[in-house]
Design a protein around this nucleic acid. Sequence first.
DNA 1: GGATGTGAGTAAGTATTACTCACCAACATT
DNA 2: AATGTTGGTGAGTAATACTTACTCACATCC
Lengths: 197, 197
Amino acid sequence: MKHKGHTNPPGRQKIIEALTRLMWAKDFHSVTTAEIAELAGVTEGLIYKYFKSKKELLYQVLNDLFAQFNQAVLDRMADKASAIEKLEVIIRSSIEYYTANRVFARILLLEVRTSPDYFRSEAYARVKAYARTILEVIQMGIQQGEIKANTDPLILRKVILGTIEHACLGEIIFTRDLDVQAITYSISTIIFNGAKA
Amino acid sequence: MKHKGHTNPPGRQKIIEALTRLMWAKDFHSVTTAEIAELAGVTEGLIYKYFKSKKELLYQVLNDLFAQFNQAVLDRMADKASAIEKLEVIIRSSIEYYTANRVFARILLLEVRTSPDYFRSEAYARVKAYARTILEVIQMGIQQGEIKANTDPLILRKVILGTIEHACLGEIIFTRDLDVQAITYSISTIIFNGAKA
DNA sequence: GGATGTGAGTAAGTATTACTCACCAACATT
DNA sequence: AATGTTGGTGAGTAATACTTACTCACATCC
């Protein structure tokens, strides 16, 4: 019998937690279903009751984690009036959250992107919605005259997201610590004021 | 007997070519050693004569491809005098090369980064050397007064590399085409002149 | 010109892995 | 009392990455 996905039984939650914990130590591919089942205290078969595949399990984990991340950023953005302030909050919050939740960051920025299935998943739909929010902030900034009128909003978003991701990747992979305030300031300065003298 | 790696016999080259060709159609993990061997016209055992593991094979493929990429960019940078011009060449060449060689880009930006072994590989050493070259260009630009003196060179590099990668990722994954000239111009404008009005 | 070693390649394994399927035991609902 | 649904088990299975023992061809050296 197949699970319909309208409940959240303890076994299911244990499986999600087990994968998340195991991914502190190694990458997704190196984690086996046997390990997950053992740590969760269930049988391997149960994993496939709740998730179509090992990958699908990963996407669900990401989906849960991203929902939290998204909410955290939106909350912090709420009280900022100007578009540039909002974008600064996005930069600072992302870096903060990524470094504080390395497993989440690794899943989002590295593990899922390799396979095409991800881009049809619920998790990716959430990521897309988040990206749209950023785009709207940029467009608002242009309308209000805060951001140069000739700026391509899609490209500015790429600059912002790409920079954030690249800035965190090194620290995530090598588990180095970084000074969130200093990096946020440096990034904002370059993106908003330009590098040219 | 183990292979010592001082020659490049036909079998070895066939294996590398086979993996590269197979990765046009699917991601690395979905490509099996059986498939590689069949397309190369050799036995599975031979793969493990020349490569310690399937991953090691991937790193070697990347190593070869990155060497070409690196050389192509350096050649194009050679005749540019100013630092900003050099950086523009880097941006344009990267985007051009990534979109023209999607398999290379996918390996470099997506497939290898998931496992820690990569960061100890020869291929990664090459990538690091390339990154150092970019850093030197930025430092030169600061010394010559082209780039703002208070710019953090490491952060500017992150902005440039992060933006390039993010800009290409979407197009690589969804195999969309992009206007290299237009995107290069937009990116350069934002990074060098800033987004703020 | 036999002995010795070495590089290129094969063939037949093996342990592990992701995934399946039939089944069980409660507990609702009809 | 019959029927279905949910949460969970346990014994499988095909396929996969990797290993080991083995050829064959060809240099080189005394």
